[in-house]
Design a protein around this nucleic acid. Structure first.
Lengths: 122, 122
DNA sequence: TTTGTCTTCAACCATTTAGTTGAACAAGCC
DNA sequence: GGCTTGTTCAACTAAATGGTTGAAGACAAA
């Protein structure tokens, strides 16, 4: 997998177990053991999942005696939404532009949107 | 990998090459060959990437003679943003609640943390 | 019909991933 | 000190991923 953060975040959330853990953590911090409880896999496996989430910057861990409470880091979500929004919006605009062109082709002669340009991507 | 759509979408976007293709497609439809052009990998590899994006519902392909123009399907983005927003918001609220509790424990009149700028607790 | 272009399929290889078990480490409890 | 609890590390396995090359399918052009 690629080593940039966005890739790590998307990859981390591509696993339903890990998304589930994020959901759990959104409701409140939890230790590794507490997080592992609902699942039918070894605690080591859960520990690995948490490591993946942590390396993506989605959770942080602190120390409490032997325990390692996990905390959701919500800021990273913005990294994703920003990326998503950029292209969602761009696609939306393009769609609307196409719509205008279709309207024009349908015969109305408003000379308003003369340029349907498919430039190279950035 | 898990077989639910959300997993497929996240997994598809975990690859920078595929994110790049999405960016390209947001600017306009493109054939497989056109998409492959900027990259240093075989056209078959690109074809596979497109297949992954298509199976995630991010891209659709139509027919134009031998060509297979790819089109970005922006609706799927909403599936992601919905999931993300849910937990981002939840975590944010929890954070603010915690903040209020801390303020209360401090016994006092300063409702805000220094690092929590917005959302005056009321 | 033959040839060339665009794309996908199939088989293969190297690397990564998600899981396992067993051992180790660290801190509280007796 | 010696046990118990919570977590991680290490080594291993099976499956998935991203890449390759070669062949084949589908269509256009000659």
């Amino acid at each position: 997998m690629a080593d940039d953060q966005l890739s790590r975040v998307f990859a981390a959330l591509a696993d339903p177990t890990r998304r589930d853990m994020v959901a759990r953590l959104a409701a409140g911090d939890a230790t590794v053991g507490e997080l592992a409880d609902p699942y039918d896999v070894s605690i080591q496996a859960v520990s690995k999942h948490i490591k993946v989430l942590a390396e993506a910057g989605l959770v942080s861990q602190t120390k409490d005696a032997q325990r390692r409470p996990c905390h959701l880091e919500a800021e990273v979500f913005e990294l994703m939404t920003k990326w998503i929004e950029r292209y969602r919006q761009q696609a939306q605009e393009r769609y609307e532009r196409l719509d205008a062109v279709l309207a024009q082709m349908r015969g109305d002669e408003q000379p308003n949107h003369p340029h349907l340009q498919q430039g190279a991507a950035s």
